[in-house]
Design a protein around this nucleic acid. Sequence first.
DNA 1: TAAAACCCGATAAATTTTGTCAAGTATTAT
DNA 2: ATAATACTTGACAAAATTTATCGGGTTTTA
Lengths: 151, 151
Amino acid sequence: MKISSRVDYALSCVLRIADKYESRKPVTAVEISRQEKIKPDYIEQLLLLLKKRKILKSFRGRSGGYVLSACPEDISVFSVVKAIENEILKPVCFREKGRRKKCVHFDDCKIISLWIGLKENMEKYLKRKNIEELLLLRRKEKNWRENRRIR
Amino acid sequence: MKISSRVDYALSCVLRIADKYESRKPVTAVEISRQEKIKPDYIEQLLLLLKKRKILKSFRGRSGGYVLSACPEDISVFSVVKAIENEILKPVCFREKGRRKKCVHFDDCKIISLWIGLKENMEKYLKRKNIEELLLLRRKEKNWRENRRIR
DNA sequence: TAAAACCCGATAAATTTTGTCAAGTATTAT
DNA sequence: ATAATACTTGACAAAATTTATCGGGTTTTA
């Protein structure tokens, strides 16, 4: 199991836009594209999903682009993941395949409840993490490196 | 993201074998195959992995089969998942692709630490769950259904 | 009014997962 | 002994999913 690259990229995009949150200047897809080395068309897909879920707002026209629709602290990692994937983990019963509609041992199969629990656990974790937190981590490390360089 | 069917099936297998833990009778791949409607060859692959990780022991020959190598309570769901998948979640940095060996923004990219945290969280959850627990859930429900039927 | 940016959907390419098959070796009940 | 039963291994084809690309729009503003 892997985190999909789309989710990972989406998070990068949000972070790039969050970097400019103070200045309130919209960030364009092309700008992010240059920074992240991803084609703008591909980024666009992600930004649109993020916008649909109200994580981003966009301004059109010549000096347009995307901005956060809330402050970094109020945007959870979960909401970003959810915007892209909808379900971070799909609890599927693999015995429902074929012509059968229900799991062979539907009544006494408790495995799916395990995956549902796992999913809830993951969601709880991701809800605790927010964009601000990731931003701070980056900045702290950056400062640390810059201080090191000076000496 | 989905739990792979292999993990799900492996867990079913372990549960089927655990059902017979008291009687100490080995359970054969064909037996499980009939119960779970999966081809025996496919099940074999999973059983072998489980055996390699010491979750199962096997007896060869005419009246052979598989048994648990520990009591159901001492087998965590995590160990089963680990036997099949090795890593429940691979924390990958998607910016390492292409000719570049390292992430474009290696130093200031903290996203991967997020996935590492998520992975640890998932593992913790799965370590708490054991086979006995799943077994009890099944049996409880079964009894409940049977009591209902009698009245 | 042209440039810059957003918007949308279809589809091709790559990767991963899933499942099948074949050809063995080892063990034991009879 | 030996046939039946079960375990062992590896290669590979089919299916599903993910990833990425592309083309053709519309809207807005310097």
